[in-house]
Design a protein around this nucleic acid. Structure first.
Lengths: 250, 250
DNA sequence: CGAGTACTTGACACGTTTCAACATCCGTGG
DNA sequence: CCACGGATGTTGAAACGTGTCAAGTACTCG
């Protein structure tokens, strides 16, 4: 059992009620591991992959380029995420995937996954559920970019990223709300639909209000309540377990 | 076999290769039909539904309200769409659903759907695929709202809506590109993240450029090539069949 | 040490929102 | 049949948020 198996088992166990048999099937799934450098294209638009990727460690992002040279980041992914699982049932990739930091990834062959799904309906349901949560996050981002002004939009992203870090067991231990968020300001802009200049100024605004600190890829949330308030943040869309979710409820 | 069965069979056949046995199973799925008036809430955020909805005729929209009273429309749905199919594997609804026109809908009980999925993996795959296409559309909308200016954004929506209408067999026959798109200008604004005033002006711009006509809920695309160009539209994200898709390719 | 990338700042331009008023359409009841 | 009311569409002017341009600083990596 590789580190990838471990990460995948943990994630799927949280996504559904698996039997011992299901777990064994996952554990014996062939996974090819690889280590990737930062800022590498992992999958490109219009490709027709025969395998999907599991992030085992590090951070990656999915995005889409516009014809006129802009791009929109759709999501930041951490250990346990399967950013292009959709390709299991959609021939053509409609979004690209790149590493943000150095990543360890696992490659899951589609034929193996399909067999697994057929024999283990609960695993299939968990994987399906995973893609449904991605869609839910997309809906929230659409709402974020479409309806909120820069400060709220950025605050919202920070709230989400901290929770996702925490749930993946990656936030720093202790009282304070600290996690890695190793993105540049231009990338923040591409995620939020704002220019890098405006990102810079909005960051200053949130910093000056003593709500967050953010540098060297490290995010600390100094005033969770206030940040949630500014963002209009409601974690329902992350579809966390009831106990986990209530910890971050508005 | 009700009209809803008919619509569902057509849709699922297009989403996957079904056997005769699969088709029979779908045909014998219990579906409760209902007729709804326009502007009715069908499902609300935070509900925990035990059934999903199939649009059999008419148009509906999914959306999300912001805490400060704005709202973002996530998608417009027509015959064959299952706008809250996600609830099959996500307990809590994170988006609401309302009718835009009078609709005939079919209610699909989750327990029946789960049984169907377990016994008919190809049907399961088709349903899963359907939710994955929704997610893909979400990604494109996020990109649209985040990166494109008003005219391109609106042009993009019109391109998509015409294709979805056509694929559902709802566009008017003949050479000209005409379909029903029965939404008000304020609703357009909620879909595109623009104020109703600006929607009005952008509409005038597209009309004056002789690209579209749009009134009384009827959309005609007068210059498809030019509209696609302005929008930066690429239909890949709709994941149409190869033959159908190439008809609208850039 | 040098070069490129990220970050920061200021001034200005532009797209979009807001506000307010008015026109038009449509269904309903008098 | 017409009068009415409410929602929808239209217009103008001003305010605001965000983008663009340009220049300079500070990192980081080779």
């Amino acid at each position: 059992m590789s580190q990838s198996h471990d990460v995948m088992l943990q994630r799927l166990s949280r996504l559904g009620n698996l039997s011992e048999d299901d777990r064994k099937a996952i554990a014996s799934l062939p996974i090819e591991q690889a280590d990737l450098r930062a800022d590498q294209d992992v999958a490109r638009v219009n490709e027709r992959p025969s395998r999907s990727i599991l992030i085992t460690s590090g951070m990656a992002a999915t995005y889409k380029d516009t014809l006129d040279g802009k791009r929109q980041i759709h999501s930041f992914h951490r250990a346990g995420d399967m950013p292009d699982l959709q390709s299991l049932h959609l021939k053509t990739l409609d979004a690209a995937l790149e590493t943000v930091t150095p990543c360890r990834v696992g490659f899951l062959r589609h034929d193996h996954l399909r067999l697994l799904c057929e024999k283990h309906p609960r695993v299939a349901a968990a994987l399906w559920r995973s893609t449904l949560i991605d869609a839910s996050i997309h809906r929230e981002w659409m709402t974020n970019v479409g309806q909120r002004k820069a400060p709220a939009r950025m605050a919202h992203l920070f709230c989400e990223q901290f929770i996702r870090s925490a749930v993946a067991g990656l936030s720093e231990p202790g009282e304070r709300k600290v996690c890695a968020f190793p993105v540049t300001q231009p990338m923040l802009g591409e995620a939020l639909g704002l220019s890098n200049v405006h990102i810079n100024r909005t960051l200053q605004y949130l910093r000056d209000a003593a709500l967050i600190s953010f540098d060297h890829g490290r995010l600390e949330i100094l005033d969770w309540k206030m940040l949630v308030d500014i963002a209009g943040f409601d974690p329902t869309y992350l579809h966390l377990d009831d106990e986990v979710g209530s910890r971050y409820a508005a």
